[in-house]
């Protein structure tokens, strides 16, 4: 029953001749419907038996029964955090693909997430009580450094950066950095749970404080991303054309990089390196909305990324009920085939 509601507004294939504006409207409405349904399910599905209605009343009407407390203190932060992380990762992917003109670029492909996670783990080893803003700062530094290393390795700036070359450099460095993260964990602790979190990523253990830590980065990141939208649109015409039209290409790339590491780093600091969202969401958005206009793609990717991660997190609860499986497992299952498909489409050149 609910399934048909979800399948119903599926767009894209339905009306290929629709104008872009109404297409976008349909996508926005379907995403919002899916987001609302997902939000309700996320609040009402859990090991404690709490009905849909009781869950909603706990959030909107208050109350202090154990069920109300569970919904407000555990499930609500988890739902909100999935939405924020989904938005951050997806917008990070949009900008990454925009500034590199590379369809298989994304923070997780180019090592930014892995770098952020590694530095966070290293920081936690040195200062176990670290949290909040300092941890976000550590993640941002890690993401920035590894991202730059990947760009240098791929020969960025020499004018010979092929898409596949960039992705190869990124995947290789990400693998290296991830094994360093693993080494940190193995050398300093033998509990499997840290591996769970820092190698795969998840919103399973979300707390209200995580939401508050991430929220400002999402808001500022979105504003900054929108401010870059017109520059990204110019860049989308090709670098030479963009320069001809007076765009400051280098400035756009640097500012874009700052927004990427800010949004991705903050998300990784609270939820670990959840993969493939930054890669997949922008593609789905561009395909469904049939547009390359970043004024549309950026907010729509945020909306769709939120929806996707919210549903991925609901899915993760059933992998090993009643225990936790990292949300990142579900996104990887969705995203890995997608990445292979995109990579196969690339022309291997020079």
């Amino acid at each position: 029953m609910a399934t048909s509601v979800i399948d119903g507004p599926e767009v894209g294939s339905a009306a290929p001749r629709r104008t872009s504006g109404s297409r976008v409207l349909v996508i926005v409405i379907s995403c919002i419907v899916l987001l609302i349904i997902g939000f309700g399910l996320s609040l009402s599905i859990g090991t404690a038996a709490i009905s849909f209605g009781a869950a909603l009343s706990a959030v909107f009407l208050g109350g202090s029964t154990p069920a109300d407390l569970i919904v407000r203190a555990i499930r609500l932060p988890r739902a909100l955090l999935s939405m924020l992380v989904g938005a951050n990762m997806s917008v990070g992917g949009v900008i990454m693909q925009g500034i590199t003109a590379n369809p298989i670029a994304a923070p997780e492909i180019l090592g930014v997430s892995a770098g952020a996670a590694m530095v966070v783990v290293a920081a936690l080893v040195a200062f176990p009580t670290m949290g909040g803003l300092p941890l976000v700062a550590a993640a941002i530094v890690g993401g920035a450094v590894i991202g730059l290393i990947v760009l240098l390795l791929a020969g960025a700036g020499t004018g010979r950066t092929s898409n596949v070359r960039l992705a190869l450099a990124g995947v290789t460095i990400a693998a290296l950095v991830t094994s360093l993260t693993q080494a940190f964990i193995i050398f300093n602790d033998n509990t499997a749970d840290n591996v769970f979190f820092w190698l795969v990523g998840g919103v399973n253990f979300a707390k209200a404080t995580d939401v508050w830590t991430l929220l400002p980065w999402t808001v500022i990141g979105m504003v900054a991303a929108m401010a870059l939208a017109s520059s990204l649109n110019l860049l989308g015409l090709g670098e030479d054309m963009a320069r001809g039209l007076g765009a400051k290409v280098e400035r756009t790339r640097v500012l874009g990089g700052v927004v990427i590491v800010g949004m991705t780093g903050a998300a990784v600091a609270v939820a670990g390196p959840i993969t493939f969202l930054g890669l997949v969401t922008p593609h789905i958005v561009r395909k469904l909305a049939a547009t390359t206009n970043h004024f549309v793609i950026i907010p729509l990717s945020a909306l769709m990324g939120s929806t996707l991660l919210l549903w991925a997190d609901i899915g993760s609860r059933f992998v090993r009920w009643p225990f936790e499986s990292p949300t990142g497992v579900v996104t990887a299952v969705i995203g890995a085939p997608f990445f292979i498909m995109l990579a196969r489409r690339q022309k291997v050149s020079g």
Partner: peptide, 28 residues
């Protein structure tokens, strides 16, 4: 609700990623 959620996630996955693997099924 659980069943609906699983079904919805699975169908969403199939539609969006246009590949045959279901989110909860194959990861388990």
């Amino acid at each position: 609700l659980r069943r609906i959620a699983v079904g919805a996630v699975a169908s969403l996955t199939v539609v969006l990623a246009s590949c045959g693997s279901s989110g909860s099924g194959s990861s388990s």
